[in-house]
Design a binder for these strands. Structure first.
Lengths: 147, 147
DNA sequence: CTTTTTAGTTAAGCAAACTTAACTATATGC
DNA sequence: GCATATAGTTAAGTTTGCTTAACTAAAAAG
């Protein structure tokens, strides 16, 4: 097998198992909190990208401004989000995760992380070191790639 | 920093960026196919775990048998799934991805994979080798852990 | 200063996911 | 063999996500 196809194969295998597992986990967690996936995804987005306006929500999830507004309204009512007026542009709103929202996402991440941790708990020190190094390489590459 | 907390930190950082990105990607892809996320998730499950009965779908997604039956019906109508009678237990149904369903999931995986590939395209041979090794370690660990 | 964009909200209505309840058909336990 | 449990379907009704359309308010353009 060529190096390149080995790379492809390893990437695919890992993505397959990891994505399947983590999607299931998030779904399950979202349900346990009483939030729908669209609602939950907005919290995730805020957590990941930081505060933003309403329009970024509708862009990101490819829904109308009306739909975004309604989803956000529910999250504000439930206390997961804070929606303040943007002082620079008073038409715009500034959406930020509330403490409650932040805690919720942390808990979800914790559960997801725990699976990874269990899974890697039987690795020896050398293997763990290799995993750390590779994940750092990937995370760096992703950050460069995003911007 | 201790080794253990370095490990935790690397794991978290990678999970955060990767999950956010891939969930967005799947959402987008599902929307482009005209399938809803619940419908799409069933196809993903079938792809990942292989053929199963109706009850496994309702268990897996934590929905009633009625809901599962209705979702599956739509997927069968759309030609993504085949629903046959289980020859051993004639009450039960055997759900399998059709060729069309398989192709759909392959396409989605392809897109997700392409992102990873772009992101890693600037890595040198040594880095790629490290990534391959680590992902193989993780995939193996996950497979042991699942069963 | 007036016109036009832009950001967001609200209301009405449709479509999809989901539930409960009643049902059919097959398998299992006694 | 009969009662009971299990696998799945169908129908009715609720909830939620989403859209379009009409709106308010502020910013930008002229």
């Amino acid at each position: 097998m060529t190096n390149s196809s080995q790379f492809t194969k390893s990437l695919r295998a890992w993505m397959d198992v990891f994505m399947h597992r983590s999607m299931h986990g998030w779904n399950h967690f979202a349900k346990s909190t009483g939030l729908s996936m669209p609602q939950f995804s907005i919290l995730m987005q805020l957590h990941h990208k930081g505060p933003c306006g309403m329009s970024e929500v509708s862009d990101r999830f490819d829904i109308t401004a009306a739909a975004a507004s309604q989803l956000v309204e529910k999250l504000v009512q439930a206390g997961y989000l804070e929606r303040t007026e943007d002082p620079i542009d008073r038409r715009a709103k500034l959406l930020t995760l509330s403490v409650r929202g932040e805690v919720l996402i942390q808990q979800g991440t914790e559960e997801r992380y725990r699976w990874m941790n269990d899974l890697t708990s039987k690795l020896n020190a050398e293997e763990r070191a290799k995993v750390v190094e590779a994940l750092n390489i990937l995370t760096n590459a992703a950050q460069k790639h995003e911007k």
